[in-house]
């Protein structure tokens, strides 16, 4: 059973370098593996989805990417993807809501589209979140569009996430009344409801864990719903705790290791034994630092999920493995 049965919009944020795009993609696959039709969105112009799924760069148009793994009854949902850029979002918005025609082209000629999407403060974010809102809450205006059971957003990084989602706040300074204000308020209604969850991706290092804690506090203060914490890029766990302790204290038995290596048929020199023990010490130090951070993550008191560091990098097969792991851990 999923920990987030009510969620229709999964926002995935995280500090740079923690792999939030990978987690967002894996989550989308995991949800599809539950038979849901999912839309995976990106908003930072990086075309990360296209690379992960090995398809051509995505346009501002929903494209079918793949299906989830079928469940026991053979059902599988689909994953569509959408690359949202502010210019296209603005033009679509104007077309859907205002049917401007000639006036729309005039806006472009006067440099107003460029002003709105590059210079005007906060407008970029509102346009991006506006499109996400539209995808979650499809209505009759967008004729013939697919409706989805869930939308997964590969969101801006933790340091910017509250500002990004807090559309009302952004618009409040600009518009006290009027159409923009009321649209922003409607969007906030969705983002603050139980239909939205904001998941945070971290790695077991001091700064990212610190930022995750700060992010949770800021989201809570802004009345935005906090989801789970995904600890990504976890080191291999090949050594059990007593062996790690022995490695740290330097009490690993070099002679026994040497005998094992002999038995395994390796051509053993003293150097190899030394290297392995040195590697063990270094690994044990890093694992100890990780453990300290794991305790801090647990102290955040959110549901947590862990994903391994994949030595070979992330391809479609690896994404399916990560998706399965997230499903088993209850994130989807």
């Amino acid at each position: 059973m999923s920990d987030w049965p009510k969620a229709r919009l999964h926002v995935v944020t995280g500090k740079g370098g923690t792999g939030k795009s990978t987690v967002a993609a894996a989550l989308a696959l995991a949800l599809a593996g539950r038979g849901k039709n999912v839309l995976l969105c990106e908003v930072e112009g990086r075309q990360g989805i296209a690379r992960m799924f090995d398809v051509d760069p995505l346009p501002f148009e929903e494209r079918r990417l793949t299906s989830g793994l079928p469940d026991a009854r053979g059902r599988a949902g689909t994953v569509h993807a959408l690359h949202i850029d502010p210019e296209s979002a603005l033009l679509e918005y104007l077309a859907l809501y205002y049917k401007l025609g000639r006036a729309g082209r005039a806006l472009d000629r006067f440099g107003i589209i460029e002003f709105a999407t590059t210079i005007a403060p906060g407008v970029r974010d509102v346009l991006l979140t506006g499109k996400i809102y539209e995808a979650v809450d499809r209505n009759a205006r967008n004729k013939g569009a697919t409706t989805y059971d869930a939308v997964v957003l590969d969101a801006p990084p933790t340091g910017r996430i509250v500002q990004f989602l807090n559309v009302s706040e952004q618009v409040a300074g600009l518009a006290k009344v009027g159409p923009i204000r009321s649209q922003a308020d409607t969007m906030m209604g969705l983002f603050r409801s139980a239909r939205t969850v904001v998941h945070l991706v971290t790695v077991l290092e001091e700064m990212p864990v610190q930022e995750t804690g700060d992010g949770i506090a800021e989201l809570t203060a802004a009345d935005l719903p906090v989801g789970g914490v995904v600890t990504n890029l976890v080191r291999p766990q090949d050594l059990p705790a007593p062996a790690l302790a022995a490695a740290r204290s330097g009490s690993l038995d070099a002679a026994a290791v040497r005998a094992d290596l002999d038995r395994a048929g390796l051509d053993v020199g003293d150097a190899l034994v030394e290297d392995l023990l040195g590697l063990a010490r270094d690994h044990a130090d890093r694992r100890e630092l990780e453990e300290t951070q794991r305790v801090r993550v647990a102290g955040l008191e959110r549901p947590t999920y862990e994903l391994p560091r994949l030595t070979g990098g992330v391809d479609l097969g690896a994404l399916h493995d990560l998706a399965r792991s997230l499903r088993e851990q209850g994130m989807a």
């Binding site: 291999p236 090949d238 007593p242 062996a243 690993l252 005998a259 290297d275 392995l276 023990l277 063990a280």
Partner: peptide
């Protein structure tokens, strides 16, 4: 063995 976790060491390597 906890004091000679050789298999684990090799996998780390």
């Amino acid at each position: 063995d906890d004091h000679a976790p050789t298999a684990g060491l090799l996998r780390l390597h």
